[in-house]
Write a protein that binds this DNA or RNA. Structure first.
Length: 290
DNA sequence: CTGGGGACGGGGCCC
DNA sequence: GGGGCCCCGTCCCCA
């Protein structure tokens, strides 16, 4: 029975019950589906979408308004590339397959959800090749009967005219991308001052361990570090006698009690508790990429 | 080489 | 707005 420990609780008790772990599969789908609404965009990958009906079809205000631009989210430092949002991650088989959603399917035409930096207008390769008209505000004007041409991607509200739809999109853009805050220590930018302040702490490291002098960005990180000095291990495994100082480590340990691990090889179906183990397994040649 | 533990980082959410 | 907490993840080390 697959167990899902990496489940985000929604409006429930904040203290996870690690003893009740067998009925969470549906929540995994929920998390991944939810996360699919956000996409990390590498600055070099972003192209301001081609204006629909040609650039001249837009008002100068609409074309030049910096509000129509967004926030640049730098790529993660992870050694692993960012996970694709369709739930497929190379050879990984998730506990339950993630089905596509209309929102996810629309992502290629959701430039404003991706919140990119301001860029001059230019036609994307896709536009040039396929002649797919896409507005700078995320309006798809494709004429397929299956694809709505008058629906706002954000609120799914239908509009009779493209101009009214453009206005609606701009409202979302103003709300979402009105301003952003840049880190003075690096090139990261954030949509809120609070997020920026939180990030700056990773540079200033204001929490210093009195025992060894090691500095941390947040108090609870320091608390966790202090446990390495005191030996305190408040997170106990309900299945064995082991205890851990770090909740994440307990979570990883709980995987060892599961017969079916979180990550599965799509070739031999062997499961692994960690993605790194699956990666090593694949690199060893079990699942040659074809 | 594999599997697991220890330590830690960072973004997001909630109070 | 700030702090605490959660989730997710990485890196390193060791048996």
């Amino acid at each position: 029975m697959p167990r899902s420990f990496l489940v985000k609780k929604h409006l429930t008790n904040k203290k996870p019950d690690y003893g009740v772990l067998d009925s969470k599969k549906h929540e995994v789908i929920h998390v991944e589906s939810s996360s699919s609404k956000l996409k990390i965009v590498h600055p070099h990958e972003t192209l301001f979408p081609a204006p629909f009906l040609g650039n001249s079809a837009l008002s100068p205000t609409l074309r030049m308004n910096p509000i129509s631009s967004g926030i640049c989210v730098p790529p993660p430092k992870s050694a692993h590339p960012s996970l694709p949002m369709d739930g497929t991650f190379l050879g990984i088989t998730y506990p339950l397959p993630v089905t596509s959603s209309p929102l996810r399917d629309m992502q290629p035409a959701l430039p404003m959800l991706e919140c990119t930096k301001p860029r001059p207008f230019q036609l994307s390769q896709r536009d040039l090749q396929d002649n797919v008209p896409v507005s700078p505000l995320g309006l798809s004007t494709t004429g397929s009967s299956q694809e709505r041409s008058d629906e706002c991607f954000d609120c799914q509200k239908a509009f009779l005219t493209l101009s009214s739809l453009a206005n609606q999109r701009q409202i979302h853009c103003q709300w979402r991308c009105q301003k952003y805050f840049s880190c003075k220590y690096c090139d990261k930018e954030y949509v809120s001052l609070g997020a920026l302040k939180m990030h700056i702490r990773t540079h200033t490291l204001p929490c210093v361990c009195k025992l060894c002098g090691k500095a941390f960005s947040r108090p609870w990180l320091l608390q966790g570090h202090i446990r390495t000095h005191t030996g305190e291990k408040p997170f106990s495994c309900p299945h064995c006698s082991r205890a851990f100082a770090d909740r994440s480590n307990l979570r990883a340990h709980l995987q060892t009690h599961s017969e079916i691990k979180k990550y599965q090889c799509r070739s031999c179906f062997k499961t692994f508790s960690r993605i790194s183990l699956l990666t090593k397994h694949e690199e060893a040649g079990c699942c040659p990429m074809s």
